[in-house]
Design a protein around this nucleic acid. Structure first.
Lengths: 130, 130, 130, 130
DNA sequence: GTGGTCTAGACCACA
DNA sequence: GTGGTCTAGACCACA
């Protein structure tokens, strides 16, 4: 698994880590039962404060994405969605609406927004049939 | 114009206000030259501190969405496309990436995200060929 | 970078701060990537409320002059020319008109104003062919 | 004397009035001893609240530009500069520096700024040898 | 430690 | 009445 963070943008470091782990799982690069790097190792690799990696892993554990195995580090757990379908949609809509508001102010049109959205999704590595 | 805010979520109050004003303009509920509620009036209506409304309005003024008439309130401005093409894209991408990050966390797939995005765009009143 | 504010005049404190940061950048005293003093530190140094410094910095971020690195402070951004040509001219004209209005009140004549303007531009370190 | 005000911009109405009276005097359209329109008359002509005109005239009286003659309205007084030369320059410099800061942020160069300044001065009717 | 958000309350300029 | 600025102080997310 390749993780790289970018201090330039506005996305928190811990969030970049959680997102990339989730993406790697969604893309099949990480399978259930695979180990992820230790907090210290990853922190050294991507040049980030270990507290930040620890926070990211803690969130992934809380969401049931990873689980800690005594003495053997962190493993990819069986994926489960903690939210109900309706709750997931509600949260998705809320996130989309914020982006739409920004797009409206910037005078983008519907087709442009959808096209750009698809480009960003592809860039981030979400496959069409993941 | 109906504005309502939600203290529970993680979207800042001032951001909810700017978003809703922007959407009301995009949907045609607010036209160029229309007045928006006064800072104090809106603050009372939605039970928020006047400073928070003032902050939201100030941002809309900076972005050319509203303009302030000294001593007489705020109205919807005719200014458009204040930002360069590159800056508009940079801001759009940033907004989309935040939404995508949330969608990833929620385990949505690309097709679902795009489809939902289109639905939300239509809901907000953006026509396909606006 | 030396910042000093003056409570006596009619220029808002936050405006004095943004102006001086901008001038320091224009004069080369602050380079792209340099850190600016933290909100709390600068507030203490110039004896101003931290909120006022935060407001000044927020404006500079919106204009692409500074960028915020979450949890680690603010630095001088590389972003440039965020606004369209028309918007840049609109803002320049507005700023010039305010100065002209003041000059008229003070009974200055055109040649004096232009000559003085050139002197101030040179003082601030703007070269003729920058 | 032709006075017209513009509610669109950011310049206060009362300031637009004082500036235009001062300009008319500087341009010789109003001579020492000439009468200016009454507060009520001017308020009706330019469609502005009489309080606003009264405030403008009060400032002009305070600065020695106009004087009130019992029963005969307001006259143009003998022009005098209430500030010392050094004080006038200090205030001019302060006004110019604010405009320069804005110009710097907008990435204008010295020649552009000076050229634009001259255009705005001409537009406002300040002659070269007033 | 860093910045970001929000409230409460004051004072000011302007119409 | 209107918006704009500033202070004081709290709480939060992030590194």
């Amino acid at each position: 698994m390749q993780i790289q963070v970018n201090t330039g943008g506005n996305v928190p470091l811990y969030r970049q880590i959680t997102d990339q782990v989730r993406q790697a799982i969604a893309a099949g690069q990480l399978q259930v039962g695979d180990a992820v790097p230790s907090v210290r190792q990853l922190a050294k690799d991507i040049v980030v404060n270990p507290n930040t990696v620890a926070k990211a892993y803690a969130e992934l554990v809380r969401d049931g994405v990873l689980e800690s195995q005594q003495g053997r580090g962190m493993l990819v757990s069986a994926r489960k969605n903690v939210y109900t379908k309706a709750e997931r949609l509600r949260r998705l809509d809320q996130a989309l609406d914020v982006a739409i508001s920004e797009a409206i102010t910037l005078h983008f049109e519907m087709d442009e927004i959808l096209q750009r959205m698809q480009q960003r999704l592809e860039k981030v590595g979400l496959s069409r049939t993941s």
